[in-house]
Design a protein around this nucleic acid. Structure first.
Lengths: 212, 212
DNA sequence: CGCCCTGTGTGATCTGGGTCACTGTACTTC
DNA sequence: GAAGTACAGTGACCCAGATCACACAGGGCG
């Protein structure tokens, strides 16, 4: 599948000319499940549009802790690759990992400015991407600040359900603990509590969210 | 003082035409010390440029908790007013408070897009503002996530010193506790510890940061 | 001067959640 | 089917930080 076809499929609201320009200059990159896309401490040289698969975006702490922030799904752009990219900068401090085989279009940064000026739909897309990531980040800030772990866990599970599009979540307790920067035992206990409250059922290797 | 004069003083890198356009459409707003500028739950209708004074920007939790995020100083723009503004949106969930008598230029949102297209210096300014606030927010996230309170307090004090431009910080322990979403007693104890480490001297109503 | 009010110091206690040390249970591989 | 290897459950313990309950100091003001 070529760049234009991907763009048609996941970015249908882009003008034709915009799609052509992107296609002419971008490179299509395949990422296999488990692979890391952005490494902490690495420069950006391109903006990324996700067209296939599912990526998880993490914030990395200094001691190698990883904290899950959000998913990138087809049709999404990595706001960070736009933002941090805009000028040379020491370290990105974020990390993206593909959890499925994925495809991203890499748009060289130099193109950004002219696309912004030439195409209204690109301008709005970029601004909207900024806006929504910014807001997401704000959400994260006050979850971490103001909410206890049990509440954060519930929100996390809801997120997963939405992003994965299924009430069966293929997650181990250990993974959840990593994503929330907590520990397995604590997550196990909290999950058990939620099970008792009939909000979910625990199985081996997956969790079933009950509706309601 | 009129808008052009303010712009000349604090935004000298703007093109002349840009300054004129802004001056022609913005309104100059005076805010007195202690006044709140943005209320949680309120829509934005303009982007703000700070030209005088000092504003503190808070994130508000659901139960009325306030968490200090950063200062807005002359020459700064409120990234949030750009971001959230870009489309009607339920609630801002952030709050700005003037700690000195301040002046801001309010630029109507409709102007944004044409300014972006017409003026390179405006485009870079906006992108750079996004970038730096985004990064600040990321810093905040991992401070809160990965650092203990004593370390966060040190960072906070450094911030204050930089933003206020003086090693005498006119802050009560209670204020600091509010800003860090902690409690007075804990802050008092930690400050005492820092005093014992000769990093600062505690006085009534102000804290003196020792160099080094 | 005594009164009050704001800011500060300090101990006692409580609790969420992290850590340690296990046990138990499925599933895989040979 | 035995052994090894993820995953999951559970108790005991610890600690940062919150909360409570004070006591006290300085500064204004009648």
């Amino acid at each position: 599948m070529n760049a234009i076809a991907y763009l048609d499929q996941h970015f249908p609201h882009f003008e034709q000319g915009l799609k052509e320009q992107i296609a002419a200059h971008c490179t299509v990159r395949q990422i296999s499940a488990g692979e890391r896309l952005i490494q902490t401490g690495q420069y950006f040289r391109s903006t990324m549009l996700v067209t296939e698969g599912r990526l998880k975006l993490y914030r990395e702490g200094e001691e190698g802790d990883e904290f899950f922030m959000y998913y990138l799904l087809p049709g999404d752009a990595c706001a960070l690759s736009m933002v941090c990219a805009s000028r040379p900068h020491p370290a990105s401090e974020i990390m993206a990992k593909a959890i499925e085989d994925s495809v991203v279009l890499m748009i060289p940064l130099q193109l950004m400015e002219s696309l912004m000026q030439e195409f209204k739909s690109w301008y709005s897309f970029v601004v909207e991407t900024y806006r929504s990531r910014f807001e997401e980040l704000l959400q994260i800030v006050d979850q971490v600040l103001f909410k206890a772990l049990d509440e954060r866990l519930v929100i996390y599970l809801e997120h997963q359900q939405k992003a994965l599009g299924s009430p069966q979540l293929q997650l181990t307790h250990q993974e959840i603990a990593n994503d929330l920067n907590s520990s397995r035992e604590v997550i196990s206990r909290l999950l058990k509590k939620l099970e008792q409250q009939k909000k979910l059922v625990l199985h081996r290797n997956y969790i079933e969210i009950l509706p309601g």
